[in-house]
Amino acid sequence: METVAFFGLGNMGEPMVANLLAKGFAVHIVQHRRPDAVERLRGAGAKVFPDAAAAAQGVKLVILALPGSAESEALLTGPGGLIEALPHGAVVVDCSTGEPPVTRRQAKLLSGKGIGLVDAGLTRGVAGAKQGKLAYFMGGTEADMAKAKPALDAMGDTFFHMGPVGSGHEAKNLSNALSYATVALACETLILGRSLGLDPARLQEALMAGAGSKALEAYGPRIVSGDYAPVRVSIGNACAHLQTTEHIVPEGLGLKLLPQALQSYRRADGQGLGGQDISAIAELWPRS
Protein backbone atom coordinates (compact mmCIF):
# COMPACT_ATOMS: atom_id res chain seq x y z
CA MET A 1 0.00 0.00 0.00
CA GLU A 2 1.06 3.60 -0.62
CA THR A 3 2.64 5.73 2.10
CA VAL A 4 0.62 8.74 3.22
CA ALA A 5 1.93 11.72 5.18
CA PHE A 6 -0.98 12.99 7.28
CA PHE A 7 -1.06 16.35 9.06
CA GLY A 8 -3.76 17.31 11.56
CA LEU A 9 -4.68 14.92 14.35
CA GLY A 10 -7.72 16.64 15.77
CA ASN A 11 -11.13 15.11 16.34
CA MET A 12 -11.47 14.39 12.62
CA GLY A 13 -7.86 13.61 11.78
CA GLU A 14 -7.24 10.90 14.35
CA PRO A 15 -10.03 8.55 13.18
CA MET A 16 -9.13 9.29 9.55
CA VAL A 17 -5.57 8.09 10.17
CA ALA A 18 -6.89 5.09 12.10
CA ASN A 19 -8.95 4.06 9.07
CA LEU A 20 -5.97 4.47 6.74
CA LEU A 21 -3.90 2.21 8.99
CA ALA A 22 -6.71 -0.33 9.25
CA LYS A 23 -6.88 -0.50 5.45
CA GLY A 24 -3.17 -1.23 5.18
CA PHE A 25 -1.69 2.17 4.36
CA ALA A 26 1.65 3.20 5.83
CA VAL A 27 1.06 6.55 7.52
CA HIS A 28 3.59 9.19 8.57
CA ILE A 29 2.55 11.65 11.29
CA VAL A 30 4.31 14.24 13.43
CA GLN A 31 4.23 15.20 17.09
CA HIS A 32 1.01 17.06 17.90
CA ARG A 33 -0.60 19.12 20.62
CA ARG A 34 -2.62 15.95 21.37
CA PRO A 35 0.16 13.57 22.42
CA ASP A 36 -2.41 10.96 23.46
CA ALA A 37 -3.66 10.80 19.85
CA VAL A 38 -0.09 10.44 18.59
CA GLU A 39 0.54 7.52 20.95
CA ARG A 40 -2.70 5.78 20.02
CA LEU A 41 -1.85 6.04 16.34
CA ARG A 42 1.73 4.98 16.95
CA GLY A 43 0.33 1.90 18.65
CA ALA A 44 -1.85 1.25 15.60
CA GLY A 45 1.19 1.35 13.32
CA ALA A 46 1.75 4.99 12.35
CA LYS A 47 5.36 6.14 12.05
CA VAL A 48 6.01 9.33 14.04
CA PHE A 49 8.47 11.96 12.78
CA PRO A 50 9.92 15.00 14.58
CA ASP A 51 8.79 17.51 11.95
CA ALA A 52 6.66 17.88 8.83
CA ALA A 53 9.52 17.95 6.32
CA ALA A 54 10.88 14.64 7.62
CA ALA A 55 7.42 13.05 7.53
CA ALA A 56 6.83 14.14 3.93
CA GLN A 57 10.28 13.39 2.50
CA GLY A 58 9.84 11.30 -0.63
CA VAL A 59 6.12 10.72 0.02
CA LYS A 60 3.80 10.94 -3.00
CA LEU A 61 0.52 11.58 -1.14
CA VAL A 62 -0.08 14.16 1.61
CA ILE A 63 -3.41 14.66 3.40
CA LEU A 64 -4.17 17.77 5.44
CA ALA A 65 -6.93 17.88 8.06
CA LEU A 66 -6.18 21.33 9.45
CA PRO A 67 -8.49 24.08 10.74
CA GLY A 68 -8.23 26.33 7.70
CA SER A 69 -6.24 27.99 4.96
CA ALA A 70 -3.82 29.82 7.24
CA GLU A 71 -2.55 26.53 8.66
CA SER A 72 -2.48 24.79 5.28
CA GLU A 73 -0.62 27.67 3.66
CA ALA A 74 1.99 27.82 6.42
CA LEU A 75 2.61 24.08 6.17
CA LEU A 76 2.75 23.92 2.37
CA THR A 77 4.47 27.09 1.20
CA GLY A 78 5.58 28.94 4.32
CA PRO A 79 9.20 28.96 5.50
CA GLY A 80 10.49 25.40 5.35
CA GLY A 81 7.20 24.32 3.77
CA LEU A 82 6.43 20.95 2.26
CA ILE A 83 6.75 22.36 -1.23
CA GLU A 84 10.50 21.88 -0.80
CA ALA A 85 10.27 18.34 0.59
CA LEU A 86 7.72 16.70 -1.71
CA PRO A 87 8.85 14.95 -4.90
CA HIS A 88 7.71 15.79 -8.41
CA GLY A 89 4.40 14.04 -9.07
CA ALA A 90 3.19 14.16 -5.47
CA VAL A 91 -0.41 15.13 -4.67
CA VAL A 92 -1.63 17.13 -1.68
CA VAL A 93 -5.22 16.58 -0.54
CA ASP A 94 -6.45 19.52 1.55
CA CYS A 95 -9.42 18.45 3.67
CA SER A 96 -9.49 21.67 5.69
CA THR A 97 -12.30 24.21 5.49
CA GLY A 98 -10.29 26.34 3.12
CA GLU A 99 -10.67 29.77 1.54
CA PRO A 100 -11.02 29.11 -2.20
CA PRO A 101 -8.81 32.03 -3.37
CA VAL A 102 -6.02 30.80 -1.09
CA THR A 103 -6.54 27.24 -2.30
CA ARG A 104 -6.11 28.33 -5.90
CA ARG A 105 -3.00 30.31 -5.05
CA GLN A 106 -1.51 27.31 -3.31
CA ALA A 107 -2.33 25.07 -6.25
CA LYS A 108 -0.50 27.41 -8.63
CA LEU A 109 2.61 27.48 -6.44
CA LEU A 110 2.63 23.70 -6.00
CA SER A 111 2.07 23.16 -9.72
CA GLY A 112 5.29 25.03 -10.40
CA LYS A 113 7.08 22.24 -8.55
CA GLY A 114 5.15 19.47 -10.30
CA ILE A 115 2.91 18.84 -7.26
CA GLY A 116 -0.86 18.49 -7.60
CA LEU A 117 -3.50 19.80 -5.21
CA VAL A 118 -6.96 18.39 -4.58
CA ASP A 119 -9.25 20.35 -2.29
CA ALA A 120 -11.53 17.89 -0.55
CA GLY A 121 -13.82 19.49 1.99
CA LEU A 122 -15.42 16.98 4.32
CA THR A 123 -18.89 16.45 5.69
CA ARG A 124 -20.62 13.97 8.06
CA GLY A 125 -18.51 15.04 11.02
CA VAL A 126 -16.65 13.00 13.60
CA ALA A 127 -19.16 10.15 13.41
CA GLY A 128 -18.52 9.82 9.68
CA ALA A 129 -14.77 9.94 10.25
CA LYS A 130 -14.92 7.15 12.82
CA GLN A 131 -17.14 5.00 10.61
CA GLY A 132 -15.04 5.59 7.48
CA LYS A 133 -18.08 7.13 5.80
CA LEU A 134 -17.01 10.67 5.11
CA ALA A 135 -18.37 12.53 2.10
CA TYR A 136 -16.04 14.74 0.06
CA PHE A 137 -16.59 17.90 -1.99
CA MET A 138 -13.63 17.72 -4.38
CA GLY A 139 -11.88 20.14 -6.68
CA GLY A 140 -8.95 19.31 -8.95
CA THR A 141 -7.93 17.40 -12.05
CA GLU A 142 -9.12 13.90 -12.78
CA ALA A 143 -5.51 12.70 -12.76
CA ASP A 144 -4.77 14.10 -9.31
CA MET A 145 -8.03 12.79 -7.89
CA ALA A 146 -7.26 9.33 -9.25
CA LYS A 147 -3.97 9.34 -7.35
CA ALA A 148 -5.76 10.35 -4.14
CA LYS A 149 -8.82 8.11 -4.51
CA PRO A 150 -7.50 4.86 -2.92
CA ALA A 151 -6.61 6.66 0.32
CA LEU A 152 -9.85 8.65 0.30
CA ASP A 153 -11.79 5.40 -0.17
CA ALA A 154 -10.27 4.19 3.11
CA MET A 155 -11.80 7.15 4.95
CA GLY A 156 -15.07 7.82 3.12
CA ASP A 157 -17.66 6.47 0.72
CA THR A 158 -19.21 9.44 -1.07
CA PHE A 159 -17.49 11.71 -3.61
CA PHE A 160 -18.64 14.82 -5.46
CA HIS A 161 -16.27 16.25 -8.06
CA MET A 162 -17.34 19.88 -8.10
CA GLY A 163 -14.91 21.14 -10.75
CA PRO A 164 -11.39 22.63 -10.85
CA VAL A 165 -9.20 23.38 -7.85
CA GLY A 166 -11.02 25.58 -5.34
CA SER A 167 -14.52 24.35 -6.18
CA GLY A 168 -14.38 21.65 -3.50
CA HIS A 169 -13.72 24.27 -0.84
CA GLU A 170 -16.44 26.48 -2.31
CA ALA A 171 -18.94 23.64 -1.92
CA LYS A 172 -17.73 22.92 1.61
CA ASN A 173 -18.25 26.55 2.60
CA LEU A 174 -21.76 26.48 1.19
CA SER A 175 -22.47 23.26 3.07
CA ASN A 176 -21.36 24.92 6.29
CA ALA A 177 -23.46 27.99 5.60
CA LEU A 178 -26.57 25.91 5.01
CA SER A 179 -25.97 23.82 8.12
CA TYR A 180 -25.27 26.70 10.51
CA ALA A 181 -28.09 28.88 9.18
CA THR A 182 -30.51 25.97 9.53
CA VAL A 183 -29.45 25.43 13.15
CA ALA A 184 -30.07 29.13 13.82
CA LEU A 185 -33.52 28.92 12.24
CA ALA A 186 -34.35 25.72 14.15
CA CYS A 187 -33.34 27.51 17.34
CA GLU A 188 -35.55 30.51 16.64
CA THR A 189 -38.47 28.23 15.74
CA LEU A 190 -38.24 26.34 19.03
CA ILE A 191 -37.82 29.58 21.00
CA LEU A 192 -40.90 31.01 19.27
CA GLY A 193 -42.88 27.85 20.06
CA ARG A 194 -41.91 28.10 23.71
CA SER A 195 -42.96 31.77 23.81
CA LEU A 196 -46.38 30.71 22.47
CA GLY A 197 -46.80 28.23 25.30
CA LEU A 198 -45.98 25.07 23.34
CA ASP A 199 -43.92 22.35 24.97
CA PRO A 200 -40.52 22.61 23.22
CA ALA A 201 -39.73 18.89 23.40
CA ARG A 202 -43.13 17.98 21.98
CA LEU A 203 -42.77 20.67 19.33
CA GLN A 204 -39.37 19.39 18.26
CA GLU A 205 -40.81 15.87 17.87
CA ALA A 206 -43.79 17.20 15.91
CA LEU A 207 -41.65 19.33 13.59
CA MET A 208 -39.46 16.33 12.79
CA ALA A 209 -42.58 14.55 11.50
CA GLY A 210 -43.35 17.25 8.94
CA ALA A 211 -40.54 19.77 8.53
CA GLY A 212 -37.64 17.72 9.79
CA SER A 213 -34.00 18.39 9.03
CA LYS A 214 -30.66 17.04 10.14
CA ALA A 215 -30.07 20.30 11.99
CA LEU A 216 -33.33 20.01 13.91
CA GLU A 217 -32.71 16.33 14.62
CA ALA A 218 -29.13 16.78 15.84
CA TYR A 219 -29.38 20.11 17.63
CA GLY A 220 -33.06 20.48 18.53
CA PRO A 221 -32.85 18.32 21.69
CA ARG A 222 -29.84 20.36 22.86
CA ILE A 223 -31.70 23.62 22.29
CA VAL A 224 -34.72 22.27 24.18
CA SER A 225 -32.74 20.92 27.15
CA GLY A 226 -30.10 23.63 27.43
CA ASP A 227 -27.42 20.93 27.54
CA TYR A 228 -25.07 21.79 24.68
CA ALA A 229 -22.25 19.34 25.35
CA PRO A 230 -20.23 17.84 23.84
CA VAL A 231 -19.19 20.43 21.27
CA ARG A 232 -19.79 19.30 17.70
CA VAL A 233 -19.02 22.65 16.10
CA SER A 234 -18.16 25.65 18.25
CA ILE A 235 -19.82 29.02 17.86
CA GLY A 236 -16.37 30.53 17.29
CA ASN A 237 -15.71 28.14 14.41
CA ALA A 238 -19.13 28.85 12.95
CA CYS A 239 -18.31 32.57 12.95
CA ALA A 240 -15.01 31.93 11.17
CA HIS A 241 -16.53 29.58 8.60
CA LEU A 242 -19.50 31.83 7.83
CA GLN A 243 -17.17 34.78 7.45
CA THR A 244 -15.12 32.77 4.92
CA THR A 245 -18.31 32.02 3.01
CA GLU A 246 -19.31 35.68 3.12
CA HIS A 247 -15.98 36.59 1.50
CA ILE A 248 -16.70 34.47 -1.58
CA VAL A 249 -20.16 35.96 -2.23
CA PRO A 250 -20.00 37.88 -5.55
CA GLU A 251 -20.40 41.62 -5.16
CA GLY A 252 -23.96 42.78 -5.72
CA LEU A 253 -25.61 39.38 -5.18
CA GLY A 254 -27.44 40.74 -2.14
CA LEU A 255 -27.85 37.68 0.06
CA LYS A 256 -30.04 38.25 3.13
CA LEU A 257 -30.16 35.12 5.29
CA LEU A 258 -26.45 34.28 5.38
CA PRO A 259 -25.50 37.68 6.91
CA GLN A 260 -28.31 37.32 9.44
CA ALA A 261 -27.06 33.89 10.53
CA LEU A 262 -23.51 35.22 10.87
CA GLN A 263 -24.83 38.13 12.95
CA SER A 264 -26.59 35.71 15.33
CA TYR A 265 -23.45 33.65 15.87
CA ARG A 266 -21.37 36.79 16.35
CA ARG A 267 -23.79 37.99 19.02
CA ALA A 268 -23.41 34.67 20.83
CA ASP A 269 -19.63 34.83 20.46
CA GLY A 270 -19.68 38.36 21.87
CA GLN A 271 -21.50 37.06 24.94
CA GLY A 272 -18.67 34.66 25.73
CA LEU A 273 -20.19 31.58 24.09
CA GLY A 274 -17.53 31.15 21.41
CA GLY A 275 -16.21 27.87 22.81
CA GLN A 276 -19.67 26.31 23.16
CA ASP A 277 -21.58 24.24 20.64
CA ILE A 278 -23.56 26.10 17.98
CA SER A 279 -26.81 25.03 19.67
CA ALA A 280 -25.85 27.37 22.51
CA ILE A 281 -27.09 30.32 20.44
CA ALA A 282 -30.30 29.49 22.29
CA GLU A 283 -28.72 31.40 25.19
CA LEU A 284 -29.38 34.63 23.29
CA TRP A 285 -32.95 34.36 24.62
CA PRO A 286 -34.07 33.95 28.24
CA ARG A 287 -35.35 30.47 29.04
CA SER A 288 -38.22 31.62 31.27
Rank of each mutant, 00 (worst) to 15 (best):
S225C: 03
H88R: 14
I29K: 05
G156K: 05
P101T: 09
L253Q: 13
I115G: 11
Q57R: 15
V233C: 14
A184I: 07
A148D: 06
V102T: 14
G78E: 07
V27K: 08
L257M: 15
H247D: 13
A143S: 12
Q106W: 08
A18C: 07
D119T: 02
L284Q: 03
G212Y: 01
D36A: 14
G80D: 03
S69I: 03
A129R: 12
A184H: 03
R105N: 14
E99H: 13
G197N: 10
I191W: 03
G132E: 07
A65T: 11
A238C: 10
A5M: 06
R42I: 03
V118F: 01
E39R: 15
S288V: 09
T123L: 08
D157K: 11
S175P: 00
A171D: 06
V92E: 00
T158D: 06
A146W: 03
I115H: 11
Y265E: 02
E99W: 10
S195V: 00
S96H: 02
A52G: 04
S96R: 02
A206K: 06
I29S: 05
G139S: 01
L122N: 07
L242T: 03
A135V: 07
E73R: 14
Q31T: 15
P250F: 00
E71V: 02
E217F: 05
Q243S: 13
E99G: 07
L20S: 09
A206L: 12
Q204H: 12
H32Q: 14
S195F: 00
S167K: 10
A37R: 12
V165M: 03
K214Y: 13
L255N: 11
E84Y: 13
G116F: 03
V92G: 00
A209P: 01
G252E: 07
K214W: 12
K60Q: 15
L20H: 09
I83R: 08
F137D: 01
R34Q: 15
T245L: 13
A70Y: 05
R287Y: 03
T103K: 03
L66F: 09
Q204V: 00
K108G: 07
T244Q: 14
S167M: 10
G254S: 12
S288K: 13
N11V: 15
A65S: 15
L203H: 02
G121N: 04
A148E: 05
L117K: 08
F160M: 09
D119P: 00
D157V: 09
G140H: 02
D144Q: 14
G24M: 11
G197R: 10
A148T: 07
Y180C: 04
A146Y: 01
V93M: 04
L273H: 06
A143G: 03
I83F: 04
R266W: 05
I248W: 02
G121K: 06
V126I: 15
F7H: 14
A18Y: 01
E14M: 06
L9N: 13
L284G: 05
G275S: 14
L76Y: 04
D36I: 08
P50F: 09
A229G: 11
R104M: 10
G8I: 02
D153T: 14
A53W: 08
L216A: 05
A201I: 00
M208F: 01
G226I: 06
P35S: 10
L122E: 05
F49T: 06
A201G: 15
G226S: 09
G78S: 05
D227M: 08
S179P: 00
A211D: 06
